[in-house]
Each structure stands twice: as C-alpha cells, then as structure tokens.
Amino acid sequence: MNDAKIEMIEIDLLLETIFQRYGYDFRSYARASIERRIRQFLAGSRCSSISEMIPKILHDEEFFSNLVQYFSISVTEIFRDPLVYRAVREKVLPLLKTWPHVKIWHAGCATGEEVYSLAIVLKEEEVYDRATIYATDFNDESLDRAREGVYALGKLKDATKNYQQTGGKASFSEYYHAHYDAAAMDGSLKERITFANHNLAVDAAFGEMHLIFCRNVLIYFNRELQNRVLELFTDSLVHGGFLCLGTKEDLQFSEVSNLYELVDAKAKIYKKKST
C-alpha cells in the first residue's frame, strides 16, 4: 500500500472521529479541499502524522475547536461579484417589493460582508424596512465578527469600486464610519438582521423565505450533502421565492433543478416554481 492510500485511511478515521465525538459531519465535505486543510493544519501542529491528531481530537477540545475553525473557510468580501447585486436590484427586488413582508436568509454568511452588502442594496431599493434578515453560519467566531461589522479599512477600496458597479447611486462612504484603520458598518444596516448559528449539514429548514443567499458554501460539500442542503432550501422557500448561489455553483445537475427556473445565468439566481 502506498503513502497516499494510507493517508486516505487516516483521513477517513479522523473525520469519523470528529463525527462520533462531536457530531460535526465533515465526511460529506468535498474531499480534495478538506484533505488540503487537514494537511496544512498538521504542518502547523506538533503532530507528525494525521493519525497522531486523532487522540488529540478525542481528548483535547481546544485542539478540536482550532481544527474546526480551520475547516471553516471564511474568506469573503463586501460586494464580491458586483454583477450579482446588480441582478438582485434589477430582477429580484422589483418582485419582492410586491410582498408586504420579505424574509431573507443568508446561509453561510461567514464574517458578514455579504449581509451588509445586500442590506445596502435593500435600503436603496426601499425594501429594507419591510425585511427580516437571518444570517447564519456554523462558525461562532465568524458570527461574532459579523455582528460587530467592523472591517479593515484597506479592504474598502475594492468595495467602493464594486459598489458603484452594482448600480449604487449614493456614496459608499455613507454606510460606514472610519476610525483609524477600521470601518464600522452603519448601525441602521443592522436593525433588521439576526445572526444565528445554523449548521447546514444537520439543522432543519428555516420557514417561509422569499430570498436565500448561499454563495460559495456548497462548493465545500460533496454532491450528496449539496442535494440535502438544496432540498432544505427548497423546503424553506415560498413559491416564487429566489435562490442565489455562488457564480461557479449550479443547480443544473442537482436533484432539485426541475423545481426552479433560471432568473440570471451569470449571477446564478433561480426562482422556485409555483407548482
């Protein structure tokens, strides 16, 4: 048996250990990426092999929590992919405006940048005041940072440029307060947002949503878990509700594809059919 095969066994055992000990199920995550994370974590740990990490996971909760933190890839940006927010402005919000009350769910919101970006668009399109926004992730540290809504000022240069590309008419600087090298998102953006822990791999549906944003989260799941989560979204959406995925994610080969119609191919926005 070669080293690569042995490593595969070690990784299987490690993921199984995490599941049995803590209930976090990474067995159905996209394999190549989770393996990469494990190898990198190993390189920065004092263990000399993946199997040596297993007893630590069993007996050392802090070791485990650092590992899970490392598994959660929380890279995100304010107004990442401006074309998405533009499509939301032009194709989604005009329809959402016809509802008296609008419920929005950001699943896998990481440190919150995407939530505040959409909140800005909702304000500008006059949907914010009748919206209830849920922003969830399974990473508590990320959620804490999302609640704070304070970001490095250096990151806001791209954000300002991207904001303009979304069709934003105001000045982006109206939405944050700079203080030294940090920018705090304006409090009025937070009023209607609830941040909460939710694990897409095990937790139940959220009811009656009109719009679900789940971008660059499904790429970390294998096909099976992707289908489970997409079913969860389908159950959570009202008829005619919208689902927005990452620009490189797709419903095409999923089990729910025939339940949706495509609204915008580039922005990966879908609408749940009413039958």
């Binding site: 996209a30 190549a32 890839i73």
Partner: peptide
Amino acid sequence: APANYHMLVERDGTIGLSVEE
C-alpha cells in the same frame, strides 16, 4: 481555473473549486 477560485481535482474525476486564502 476561473479568476478568484482555486481549482482542485477530486479523485472521482470531477473538479472542485474553493475560495480559500
């Protein structure tokens, strides 16, 4: 590989994408 995504090969012969660091 699309801009801003890492492109990985899965052993089952599919492509995986990631936005990690």
